[in-house]
Nucleic acid binder design. Structure first.
Lengths: 207, 207
DNA sequence: GCGGATACTGTTAGCGCCTATCATTTGTTA
DNA sequence: TAACAAATGATAGGCGCTAACAGTATCCGC
């Protein structure tokens, strides 16, 4: 029902599969709990493994690194799909903007609190911030290619890449502001404001 | 004369100071050489220390982490100062744009090749990319505050932060394109193009 | 110069993340 | 139930990085 990797419920599978997703969830749950309780750096994977009733080795079989316990989700394909299925007439920025708004609305409605606490943890932990940026860099590539495939740009894709990077930057900034404000404001609204800045403030200085 | 931390030559100091900056340079030089020779991950700090004729401990006394040997520079204050000393009438984006162009021109003229090889190493090494993003995040804060101090924005600084983030995103994208193109194009020119996208393409979709 | 305060360096030991190898247990399938 | 495949655990080790202590080189007042 919750957790970063949600948005898809898994119907009954074989016993083995069930146990796997069960221990995976146990690891992730205990990890999050310990991270919030005593901090990310101060929690060793040994402790997490012990709390989940599993050996340290097993931890790394489920999550390649300690960071992945917090970072891993699958939101990207959702947004990419939503960009691709937008009407072709819209300008690039608008397409990304609407697609992100739609995708975010779904995630936000289902997991608002979980998203807030998770983002707070990520943004306040250097190692996790780094991984977030890495993920966003991949997001830029995805958006850029979703954008560039049918635009008339001929600069080797620079325009679509800059556009995509600016969009991600806007979203990131809005998210930071959301977390810094303790979640008192609404994220989708902040994202809209950030895109407004991209449209108006920047567009106001042509030359 | 060369090296990432250049742009300021150190006049003769005490013997101790001289030896310090000497071993510091030795470490950095040997590190770069080994990284380019056999890859960043495949080079241990022990090897670097040995090549520099120093103990592994001493390495960490000069550079807090292995990444810092490659990352550390002091370009940021240069750009910030150049933003601050711009005429007040200019729109935000233009101010950042000109300041970056000026600052980059100086760095570029002095260290073009070194910059290229260093950026190639950074962009192709996940751990170093992560550190670069961290540094850019600090750059966003600096630019945003240099921007927000005298603008008429009243949204808690969101506008200046988004603007700054978009600028950094444009610069980063241009740099990536520069490196991917093997340095055949000129970086300042690519940065200009990227800023053009910010002004024109994005500004074209108000609403 | 000389002696003491000061700073730099090296050694050892250790923690934590992560990997490789191999034996063991557990679930699946015929 | 027997043969097979998959998941797990134990051991050992590399690497980044830190702490504590001891040794050595520079600096400074005499």
């Amino acid at each position: 029902m919750a957790g970063p990797t949600a948005l898809k419920s898994s119907p009954a599978a074989s016993l083995r599969e069930r146990k796997k997703s069960q221990t995976r969830q146990a690891i992730q749950r205990e990890a999050l709990r310990l991270f919030l309780e005593k901090g990310y750096e101060a929690t060793s994977v040994g402790e997490i493994a012990a709390a989940a009733g599993v050996s340290p080795m097993t931890f790394f079989r489920y999550f390649p690194t300690k960071e992945d316990v917090v970072i891993s989700d699958d939101y990207d394909p959702l947004v990419v799909e939503m960009i691709a299925t937008r009407p072709a007439g819209e300008p690039a920025l608008t397409r990304v903007r609407r697609a992100v708004a739609d995708g975010l609305a779904r995630i936000y409605a289902a997991d608002r609190e979980a998203l807030l606490v998770r983002m707070r943890l990520i943004l306040s932990t250097p190692a996790l911030r780094a991984r977030l940026w890495e993920q966003q860099s991949a997001g830029v590539k995805l958006i850029a290619s979703a954008l560039g495939s049918r635009a008339g740009w001929e600069d080797g894709g620079l325009a679509s890449r800059v556009t995509a990077a600016a969009c991600i930057a806007a979203i990131t900034t809005a998210t930071e502001a959301w977390v810094e404000g303790g979640g008192r404001e609404e994220l989708p609204q902040l994202v809209e404001q950030a895109f407004d800045v991209l449209c108006r403030e920047l567009g106001a200085s042509n030359g």
